[in-house]
């Protein structure tokens, strides 16, 4: 059985009232342990709602979300769900609780009732994992956005969750902070085997994932590897979704009548392809 399983999930905000609006219309999605999944879509397509459903912050109005076999809607086991799936939000300022970095990272394990000495070990390890160890005694408001976001990630790692769900973690960051956070996420997935669910609307970030899920208006449109998903540029354009810059370039060149050997996803790949293409042309 998959680690996270959404079965026929429907969700409406203000479900009991007259102005209930359904944002998810029966979504099925399974995520395996150790995967790096990017969840893509427009604002209001239901992707942030999905994030909060994964750790039981929201409960589906119909259908089920299972985390490690536990139903998120059962009140008694909600802590067990949150102990496995951590959530990182968009605004780095609003999710740090304590006035000192290391004490903020300790907040999660403290809530779980972990022994003080063990907390210390986890906090140090988590801060090293996100490369923020030397800032452990700083005040959060003196850090840059990217650094704050990495502290927030450390706060989840210290709880030793198996999975981290990140809801547009780079949306409020500058390009440098964005790279820092993306590198951290990839490293955690690769080295620690932590399952990552990255919700984003930056296509160039989605390309770095192992699997891309595209959502639109509360449904899943596409689900596959980045190459599979982004190769169908026409389809994405029809749904007003962007493609990575390199893909966009290749797509336009193809449309202008230039025959390219393949559709590149990243910048490096794109450069390599052009080199090959130009060599072919000159010979």
């Amino acid at each position: 059985m998959s680690f996270i399983q959404a079965q026929q999930v429907r969700f409406s905000y203000d479900a009991e009232t007259v102005d209930a609006r359904e944002v998810l219309h029966g979504v099925d999605l399974s995520i395996e342990e150790g995967e790096f999944v990017a969840l893509l879509g427009h604002n209001g397509c239901g992707k942030s709602t999905m994030a909060k459903l994964f750790n039981g912050m929201l409960i589906p109005t119909a259908g089920k979300v299972l985390v490690g076999g536990i139903d998120t809607s059962v009140e008694e086991t909600q802590l067990d769900v949150r102990r496995q799936v951590g959530l990182v939000l968009q605004n780095p300022d609003n999710q740090l609780v304590a006035g000192v970095v290391e004490e903020d990272v300790a907040f999660g394990p403290e809530n779980l009732g972990v022994e003080p000495r063990e907390i210390r070990r986890r906090v140090d390890e988590a801060l090293k994992a996100v490369d923020m160890y030397e800032y452990r005694e700083h005040a959060p408001h003196k850090l840059s956005g990217g650094q704050k976001q990495r502290v927030a990630i450390a706060g989840i790692i210290a709880m030793e969750t198996k999975c981290i769900v990140l809801d547009e973690p780079t949306a409020m960051l500058d390009p440098r902070g964005r790279t820092e956070v993306m590198e951290t996420i990839r490293r955690l997935n690769r080295e620690k085997g932590i399952t990552i669910v990255l919700i984003t609307h930056y296509m160039d970030e989605a390309v770095q994932a192992g699997r891309v899920v595209v959502m639109d208006e509360g449904n899943i449109l596409r689900d596959g590897t980045p190459r599979e998903v982004f190769s169908d540029v026409e389809f994405l354009k029809r749904h007003d979704l962007d493609v990575p810059q390199a893909t966009e370039l290749a797509y336009r060149l193809t449309a202008a009548g230039i025959k390219l050997p393949e559709m590149p996803l990243g910048v490096e790949e794109c450069v390599k392809m052009f080199r090959r293409y130009l060599r072919m042309e000159t010979h």
Binding site: D93, Q95, E102, E103, P116
Partner: peptide, 24 residues
């Protein structure tokens, strides 16, 4: 900010002072 913070705190298993330990 308060709404966000509440979500973040709950996600990190905050459930009041009961059974809570301290690092320091």
């Amino acid at each position: 900010r308060a709404f966000d913070l509440a979500t973040a705190m709950e996600s990190r298993c905050y459930h009041g002072g009961e059974g809570r330990t301290k690092m320091k």
